[in-house]
Write a protein that binds this DNA or RNA. Structure first.
Length: 611
DNA sequence: GCCGTTTTCGGCCCGACTGTTTTCAGTCG
């Protein structure tokens, strides 16, 4: 059974509980559990099946949630979830996808007006019935009406690579403004997530209004969603939202830390700060005034006073652009991220690992990994040429690789089964290898390896005979067909490939295409165990639509000592440039240069291959 | 609902902005 199914069930429970006005911390417990399960490096089934282990050893899973997981693994559903679904119509959940409409307002619409679908909501708005509700008004009604059509589109996330193009245009546009001292894009973009929902732009500028005006002149801008003294939100024509925040220099590091997130990482950081009598917010780190013991009983009164005070101070900041913000005590740090973390006794964390997974434990043990960088890669072991479905010749690919500073490449065109891509039969393949031998004579300090991307057939077994595979330097094994097969079938096929002595690596091991195609059903626990046993490699395909293995799976492979290979799977010379997306994903997995095989020479890799 | 070298009960991160209110709730990140 899939971890993601259990996580999705918990997320849905959290959504539904919010409508019932449940204790928000109870809701959070379900959301936190869902996230922890998604981040888990092994399957829940494995943990549950082990008599020496208990589901409650997973962070955020207590007695109750462990029981619910067991119930799901047993029966395929959770009775409590079924009951919640009966109580709350599905259309109500669709309402919270509308920007500005949260669970409270959606619940009110359902309760007061009996609305349970987006169509009914639209009709109610057009009949002016929503504006008359308590807590609603004309503006809210208009916003809802406009948001109904946007709801579907706003949910879409774009590939990091696509967001990066927009980010570069945006930064170039903003740099034309004089008086910007520092500028960074924070959020999930900075953390290198595989998809991006919006862009968080952070600016340290003389004049907040000038910065916001400049954003207002960005050519792709469609609408201004909101604008205050220090914050502005806009939407681009393509639906992407940009949030601009302007802060003084003294707060830039704190704001960068804050808006980079992740949210869960920040929650832990702030709790740690609180334990030390510190307050962390986007303006800095502050020592909480003496006398405010953690056991203080006037918590709510105090926080109200603080927020009022903060507001007043903020207008001050907007006016001067530079005055320090003393929100709740003595300012200690905030100019740089390093300062902020140091104030709480922590090292600086690379943004890619700020996901509330292992990073705080690593920091405590003094074992924060030195993450791999794109310049660490010296070879690329998966690419295609015009011999199959690539757009560049063998020679062109080699020259492009040399230009990018690589020391070796493997040419891995398709095998015959991929007839659409003009896959190579043994004769054509051996002809290509002869050409590689000739070309290698032309280059100094650069090696082209004789490879193949050989299909793992639907009925099991490899698409080329062993005597051919035996002649290759590097054999990439892939599942392209029969992706709808059962978990047992697909897992068996891959295990079979791993037992073949000539196979070097499994390419894109789950077959997923991000937000387009789900991974095929495969038991990665079994695949990894076999890979470790047979000394095989696992690919991290760097294509921005694949990124397969993903970060969580790659971290699991690392734990078993399986060497990862980051590959471009290039089908053109430009395709070689995707390696940097694979690097981001590898960093999110906590991989160091040592964990990735193609940071080493080909001679070194050869020694790691099975004999 | 989870969690605990201060606690098995009483905590659980923090602030900007909007629209609706006349002091604040809801939403968002």
């Amino acid at each position: 059974m899939n971890n993601r199914d259990v996580a999705a069930a918990f997320d849905e429970i959290a959504d539904l509980l919010e409508f019932q006005n449940a204790n928000p911390f109870r809701v959070r417990a379900y959301r936190n559990a869902a996230r922890r399960i998604n981040d888990l490096p092994e399957s829940l089934t494995t943990v549950a099946a082990d008599p020496n282990r208990d589901l409650t050893e997973i962070e955020g899973i207590g007695k109750d949630l462990a029981q619910k997981i067991a119930e799901f693994l047993d029966t395929g559903s959770i009775a409590m979830l079924e009951q919640l679904r009966d109580e709350i119509p599905g259309g109500v959940l669709a309402m919270v996808r509308i920007p500005g409409l949260g669970p409270k307002k959606a619940a009110a619409l359902h309760k007061e007006l009996g609305i349970s679908s987006l169509d009914e909501l639209r009709a109610a708005c057009e009949a002016n019935r929503v504006a008359e509700l308590k807590g609603f008004g004309k503006k809210t009604q208009d916003k809802i009406l406009a948001g109904i059509d946007l709801a579907a589109r706003a949910q879409e996330r774009m590939y990091w690579a696509h967001a990066d193009e927009i980010v570069q245009e945006l930064l170039a546009h903003m740099r034309k403004l004089k008086g910007i001292r520092q500028m960074e894009v924070a959020g999930s973009y900075r953390r290198g997530r595989e998809t991006i929902g919006d862009i968080d732009l952070l600016v340290d500028a003389e004049d907040a209004n000038a910065a916001m005006d400049q954003l207002g002149r960005f050519e792709e801008l469609a609408t201004v969603i909101g604008r205050g003294d220090t914050k502005m939100s806009v939407r681009l024509g393509r639906g992407l939202q940009i949030d601009l925040r302007v802060v003084p220099s003294k707060s830039f590091g704190a704001a960068l830390q804050y808006f980079t997130g992740s949210k869960d990482h920040n929650v832990i950081l702030r709790a740690m700060a609180k334990d030390r009598g510190l307050l962390v917010n986007e303006y800095g780190v502050f020592r909480v005034a003496a006398g405010d013991s953690p056991a203080t009983k006037k918590q709510s009164t105090k926080s109200t006073e603080n927020s009022a005070k903060t507001k007043a101070e903020n207008s001050d900041v907007a006016a001067t652009g530079e005055s320090p913000v003393a929100t709740a005590g003595e300012y200690i740090a905030g100019r740089t991220e390093e300062e902020v973390y140091a104030a709480v006794g922590l090292p600086w964390f690379p943004p890619e690992i700020r996901e509330a997974r292992q990073e705080f434990a690593w920091a405590e043990a003094g074992k924060l990994p030195t993450l791999i960088e794109v310049t660490d890669l010296v070879g690329d072991l998966h690419m295609h040429t015009t011999a199959s479905d690539g757009q560049a010749t063998l020679r062109a690919m080699a020259v492009a690789a040399i230009e990018r500073g690589l020391k070796y490449i493997a040419i891995t065109d398709h095998s015959p089964r991929v007839s659409m891509a003009n896959g190579l039969n043994p004769q054509r393949l051996r002809k290509q290898w002869a050409e590689i031998d000739r070309l290698n004579g032309e280059f100094d300090d650069f090696t082209i390896l004789k490879g193949i991307e050989c299909d793992i057939l639907e009925k099991g077994g490899m698409d080329l005979p062993d005597d051919v595979l035996a002649e290759a330097d590097w054999v990439v094994a892939s599942v392209h067909y029969g992706q709808q097969q059962s978990r047992e079938q697909i897992t068996e096929r891959i295990l079979g490939a791993l037992e073949n002595p000539y196979v070097s690596i499994i390419a894109h091991p789950t077959g997923r295409l991000i937000s387009r195609r789900e991974p095929y059903a495969v038991d990665l626990d079994q695949v990894f165990a076999a890979a470790a046993k047979h000394h095989k490699f696992m690919e991290m395909n760097a294509n921005p639509a694949r990124l397969d293995l993903d970060d969580v799976a790659a971290a699991a492979a690392k734990q078993l000592g399986i060497p990862i290979v980051i590959s471009s799977d290039a089908h053109s010379t430009g395709g070689l440039d995707v390696l940097r997306y694979g690097i981001l994903q590898a960093r999110r997995a906590g991989l160091t240069a040592k964990d990735v095989a193609n940071t080493r020479s080909w001679t070194a890799i050869k020694k790691m291959l099975p004999k």
